[in-house]
Structure formats: structure tokens, C-alpha cells
Design a binder for these strands. Structure first.
Lengths: 229, 229
DNA sequence: CAGAATCCCATTCGATACTG
DNA sequence: CAGTATCGAATGGGATTCTG
């Protein structure tokens, strides 16, 4: 009722909240689509693959079920998210970004890179596996070609550096030279944000398998930008 | 009181609204800083130079004075905006982006480029001169080197294409080959968004001075992206 | 006139409880 | 687990008013 109104033809038409910017600039239109509270973070959670309602909540512990349901409805009406029913016998609903929704990652990365220059950023907060991978993409500084896997809790990602381009995919990787495993993002943040060595990260819960030298070199590909103030 | 609390030492400490994301990802932190309603559009208005309170309102006719004052206070506390007192005899307050605040333009451009792919975008809405220049930057597709001036209402911008890079500055331009003048953004939107010729834009209020061929070529450097749906 | 302060109301958010 | 219902609290928007 709040999210959309059904026209005479029965078509869903996004009405959104009465609050519009009434501004023809693309930035304003983007904010109409994904500027509501939590919207961009929900998209981040879906950036590496479809997720169930509960899995999104898992990545965003501070969101309430009500707001999450509301946002998913709005994002679906906006064409950013698609609700899909998995085939039987699974028969559960998952939420996935549309192709267009996935293209918002450039904007998201730009926001990450910008905000991480601030000395006010607090890396001690909770970080989901999707948030970690997003941060890695934002923090990539370049380095030698390599490939590996990162396992965070239940989630597995294939990462690679090829020709100076860093790529993350969901799932197992081809020809992974190393694998970093941790129960949550904390130890990996130490390694990537904190610029500590592999050994220090292992002391706080990281497990390294495979080529240790390759893993260490990979860790050196990322750094927080220089702070401003 | 709502924007900041004064500590024992008397220092201003951004408390924001109780609503936090509690998420270590840079995207979440960016949203804490500039994710409130109107914040990014206020920054857009300041992107090409400092403005007075009333001038910002002029660019954002739908914002209320209360919310604008509140946002300016928050953005100042966040280090994105600086409130400056012009030297006498002017002695008026203006709001300017800090260096860091200006760096958010990459993220803003990415949002523009993303959202303008949507068929839902409505170019018939109001557009401020800052919004127009932002949109031009987002719509730039490349073209031959040139330089000119664009005058929208009271505002004057120097634009140039050099080595495939499009630049906008506030004020008069060096060696401008042409000048496009209009009372508001509408005729210029016709030219740049609408892909109509110079003559058609002149029919709706555009005035062209100087080298017409250069002006026409400049107009051809911009285009809306292909729509998705 | 610029812009801060105040009041009122509609909407939204967040937390908890509830249901299939 | 996947949402929905409900309610108090906070916010946004608009109008009005004060102050210099």
C-alpha cells in the first residue's frame, strides 16, 4: 500500500514515499531510487550473489525486519532487486540484484574510497563478508598477479589479481594458490586494513592454507588511503 | 543539540542522530556522513564554488529552510562543508565544500551515470545550474578539444574539452570559442540531454555567441546512456 | 533580506511481538 | 525462517516568527 499503487490496468507503479526531490539531476534521481536508509547496504549484501531474507539480516545485524522488507519491496519496484523463487525442492525465495542493480557497484566503490579517507572511520565495527569484499575492492592498490580463496564463516569467495585488476567472485576459485579462512571478517580486516603481517593475523584467528608467500603478497595489495585531518 | 554535543573540553563531537549503521564498510560510513536526505544535493550545489544560504535554496526549491540549516550544520560537523565569513564590506556567510568534500564528486558522478541509465528518469523537472554542470560531467562521451562558456541565469561557467577530458570551472573562461546563454537550464537540457540541434535549442531560449560550429561540436560531446528496460 | 528558532503534523524508523 | 502487526520515538516538511 505504501510502496506502490495499482493502476486501473493493474500495473505496479512506483509511488515511493511522498518525499521527492523534484530535481532532474541524475544524482537526485539516484537518491530517489536508492537513497533511503539501508538501501545501498542491502544492495551491497547482494552484490556477490543472491541471498535469503535471513542472510541479508545476518550481514546487517542492526536493520529491523520491517525496514528490510519495506526496502526490498521498494528496490524491487525500482528494478534494482528481483525476488526469485528457487526451483523445488528448495522452493525458497531469494533476493538478487538485477543487471542494472549490479552496475551500482561503481558508485558504491567511489563512496567507499571517499569515506575511507576520513580519520573518523571506525574499523572496529561489525563487517559482513560482503562488506569485507566490497572494502577490499575499494582498497586495492595494485600488485602482482595471483589467485586465491577467502572463506569467511559460511561464505567462500574466489579472488584474483590479473593485469592489475582485482576481481572477486562468489564460490570456489580456479587455480587458487592460497586460501585464507576466518570465522568472521575481523582477522581479515587486521590483515587488509591494519597492514599487519600474516603471522599477526593468524594470531587473531586467520588460517592460511597453500602458498604462504602468495598469501602474504596478496595481503600487500591493499591499503587504507592516507587520512586527511 | 541534535547535531553535536559539547564535551567537557568544549570540543564539538559529531553525535548525529541515534540512527547508526554500526558497520565497518566504507559505504556505510559514507552514508553516515552524507546519507541523510538532501545532503548529497547540497554538496552538489556547492561543487562549483561557495554559495550563500539563499542561493543553495534557489538551486533546491523543494528543501525547507529548517532542513537546509540542519544539514549544513551536520555537514560542517562532518568536515565536508565549511562556513566562511566573507571579508568586510561584504561580511556575509557563505558555505563552501572542504577539499575532502569536493572529492566526493567522483561518487556523485558515478551515481549520476548509473541512474541515468534508467528509463524512469524525468528530465522535465527543475534543474539548477550546478545540477546541469554535474549532469554534463556525467554525460560526457568524448570529442574534439574546445573551450567555451555557459551562462545560466546569474551563473557563469568555463567549460573545456582537452585531451578527452571535460572540465568545468566557475567563472569566465580563457580563450572561449563560444558562449551559450540561457535564463535557466531548460534550453541547455534540450541541447545536451535531448540531442536536438543548436537551432532547436535556440528556438526554446538558448542564445549562442561566438563560433557556432564549435558550439555545435561541443553539444555533440554529450549523450544520455542507452536505456535499459 | 538572511537565516535561526519554534510549532504542528505526516511519515518513517526501530524494537518487539506475533503468525504461518 | 520469512515476513507482518503494532507502537513509541525520531525526522522531515511547511508555515510562522524572531532577530539583526
Amino acid at each position: 500500500m505504501k510502496l506502490q499503487k495499482v493502476t486501473d490496468a493493474g500495473q505496479a507503479e512506483p509511488v515511493r514515499h511522498g518525499r521527492r526531490y523534484r530535481d532532474a539531476c541524475g544524482a537526485a534521481f539516484a537518491l530517489e531510487l536508492v537513497g533511503e536508509r539501508w538501501a545501498l547496504l542491502i544492495m551491497r549484501e547482494l552484490m556477490f550473489g543472491p541471498k535469503r531474507f535471513g542472510a541479508i539480516r545476518g550481514g546487517l545485524p542492526a536493520i529491523s525486519a520491517r525496514v528490510l522488507a519495506e526496502r526490498l519491496g521498494e528496490l524491487e519496484a525500482a528494478g534494482v532487486v528481483r525476488r526469485e523463487m528457487l526451483a523445488p525442492p528448495a522452493s525458497v525465495a531469494v533476493y538478487a540484484l538485477t543487471d542494472w542493480g549490479r552496475q551500482a557497484d561503481e558508485a558504491m566503490l567511489a563512496l567507499c574510497r571517499w569515506s575511507l579517507q576520513s580519520p573518523g572511520h571506525d574499523p572496529s565495527l561489525h563487517l559482513s563478508s560482503a562488506g569485507l569484499m566490497m572494502s577490499l575492492r575499494a582498497l586495492f592498490r595494485g600488485g602482482a598477479d595471483t589467485a586465491g580463496e577467502i572463506a569467511v564463516g559460511e561464505d567462500l569467495f574466489a579472488v584474483s589479481v590479473a593485469k592489475g585488476v582485482f576481481t572477486v567472485r562468489s564460490g570456489a576459485g580456479e587455480a587458487a594458490a592460497f586460501r585464507l579462512t576466518a570465522a568472521d571478517a575481523r582477522p581479515l580486516m587486521q590483515l587488509f586494513y591494519g597492514k599487519v603481517g600474516l603471522a599477526a593475523a593468524e594470531a587473531v584467528g586467520l588460517a592460511v592454507a597453500g602458498d604462504r608467500a602468495a598469501a602474504a603478497a596478496f595481503g600487500g595489495c591493499f591499503a587504507l588511503p592516507d587520512k586527511l585531518a
